[in-house]
Design a protein around this nucleic acid. Structure first.
Lengths: 219, 219
DNA sequence: TCAATAGTGTCTGTTAGACATTATGGA
DNA sequence: TCCATAATGTCTAACAGACACTATTGA
């Protein structure tokens, strides 16, 4: 590899903010390097595409590729002594079952550990990035298992939007958007009536897929 | 400068999709190089920030800095023979009075000239980028002069959203959002009653700045 | 005057959100 | 049986969109 020679050719790094919902909160993946923690990052090799490199980061630390991924605005930094390098920040999501491998850990987004200033900024803006894309991309659904209850889906929407939604209105809007289809499975969660499981199944049929609107309030 | 040596250190290029509204249509700035046309681009110098470099591009070709600017997702390309380089695409807007300098020209976005495939993709996605940000950033207002009529503002919204809006509803939503303030100036445009001029003046006061919602249709 | 555009008040069908009720499981 | 959660029906205040009307200029 002839380390720094080869790798410096692209002169860019990939930083990844990988998000998942665990125990009702948004978590981000961090890697432990000695005593400190940091977001996963790597040098961009010349060969691979940037997105492939980011996916490789996700696979390395969780065993799963991100189920949705987007690149953010690149910035210059002085991370390397021999000159400025470009940092390309990625924001991705994985489902709730992806475990952190050795050396990595999930950390609540609303109580981040000590991070480098730039990485802290990236992590804090990740939620806004997800919110920005959730109307046009299936971000919320990629944070869930392939089948899910409507309560789980509503919880993800509430986490992304940062506010409580109204249950009946949420389901009406969902129905009007033709985004989910019921399965014939049900799941019993402790007490109470079992919930029907749904899957993500966007449909073009009649009604031209109105995007899900939520001015909804309260619970 | 010892050309390629110095400039290659960052190994990245800036591409700029600069947008403006002229004669009721969205235009993008292109530069003529010989017979072909291309989007403005330059190598990223080590010293300047990427955004500063993009602004420099705007100033070079129009004399004005972009009044709003955002960086998109970086991609790798093979533009340079000595290896892959990163391309950081910027999307920016300028007001309606910015003129194209010699060597550059405004071109309608809906009838683009022959461009390199990647640049064509960038230009075509620019409108989507503006639409994505217009709810959180004053994109629409930066496409206008400091003072403007409500008809002009509505036209910009219609261009960005790609559909006609309802006049009365548009103004009601605008009032509820506390985004504009009237001036004491009026402008007479040919026949008809003169229009009052407004300026962008977002306010936090009561009603917590509900973002402008438009499910509005028709004219 | 007429024509053209700006700006506003009123009406109505639609719907977000509140509320109540039924359904179905576990304890 | 009681409790907890799912799912759904009904009601109402709010509002998007339609429409009509007034206001104010140039021709």
């Amino acid at each position: 590899m002839s380390d720094s020679k080869m790798r410096r050719r692209g002169a860019a790094t990939i930083d990844l903010v990988l998000c998942a919902v665990r125990q009702g909160r948004v978590h981000v993946l961090v890697v432990k390097s000695g005593r400190a923690v940091a977001l996963p990052f790597r040098w961009a090799d010349d060969g691979a595409s940037l997105e492939a490199a980011a996916q490789d980061l996700a696979r390395t630390h969780t065993g799963h590729a991100a189920s949705w991924l987007t690149a953010g605005a690149a910035t210059t930094s002085k991370r390397h002594p021999s000159g400025a390098v470009l940092t390309v920040p990625f924001v991705g999501v994985v489902g709730p079952t992806a475990a952190a491998r050795a050396g990595a850990a999930w950390h609540p987004l609303d109580a981040l550990p000590e991070l480098a200033p730039r990485q802290r900024t990236m992590a804090e803006s990740a939620l806004g990035t997800l919110r920005l894309h959730m109307d046009l991309a299936p971000v919320a659904f990629r944070l869930l298992a392939p089948v899910f209850t409507l309560a789980e889906l509503q919880q993800v929407y509430e986490l992304l939007l940062g506010r409580r939604l109204h249950k009946a209105s949420f389901r009406r809007a969902l129905q009007a958007a033709y985004l989910v289809a019921p399965t014939d499975e049900w799941r019993s969660e402790g007490r109470g009536r079992p919930a029907q499981l749904f899957r993500y199944a966007p449909s073009k049929r009649r009604g031209a897929h109105r995007s899900v609107r939520f001015d909804l309030l309260r619970g």
